[in-house]
């Protein structure tokens, strides 16, 4: 029962001053903040499912609400942040999934590149299947 031990572990207070210490810390925070946009947009889609279940008028009203200027700005920001999340995620894949082939390892650029290729093809496929063209 680790929680019931009588000793008091030292908890170091951490403020926000680390953020500005190096540009990479700021980029790290930006990447992490993508979660607000991914989560927010997904909650919007859950709301869309509710409207879809209510019938044609409710669905039309949902699509109309998507067109408000605030919603457009949010979606543009959400798109930018998710693309940034995707890029950082795929750039990490050579570290997360190193692939050994015989004596050596597959080049890092090949592993990340394969992910980018699948990403591009999948996106085109979804656009095509959804009738966006």
């Amino acid at each position: 029962m680790a929680e019931q031990m009588s000793r008091k572990p030292y908890v170091r207070a951490i403020g926000r001053e680390w953020l500005t210490r190096h540009p990479r810390y700021l980029r790290y925070l930006l990447r992490e903040l993508s979660c607000l946009f991914i989560g927010g947009w997904t909650l919007m889609m859950v709301w869309g499912l509710a409207r879809l279940a209510q019938g044609p008028e409710a669905w039309a009203a949902f699509l109309e609400a998507l067109r408000s200027p605030a919603s457009v700005v949010l979606q543009v920001l959400a798109l930018a942040f998710t693309v940034y999340h995707g890029v950082t995620w795929f750039n990490l894949t050579p570290k997360a999934l190193p692939l050994q082939l015989g004596e050596g390892f597959v080049a890092e650029r090949a592993i990340a590149g394969a992910h980018y290729a699948v990403w591009g093809l999948l996106s085109l496929l979804v656009l095509f299947l959804a009738g966006a063209f």
């Binding site: 991914i38 947009w41 997904t42 919007m44 889609m45 998507l66 979606q75 959400a78 798109l79 998710t82 693309v83 999340h85 995707g86 995620w89 795929f90 699948v118 990403w119 999948l122 996106s123 979804v126 656009l127 959804a130 966006a132």
Partner: peptide, 11 residues
């Protein structure tokens, strides 16, 4: 990473 950007693009 794979799916959300294109889904946001749809909406």
């Amino acid at each position: 990473a794979f799916l959300t950007p294109v889904l946001i693009l749809l909406t």
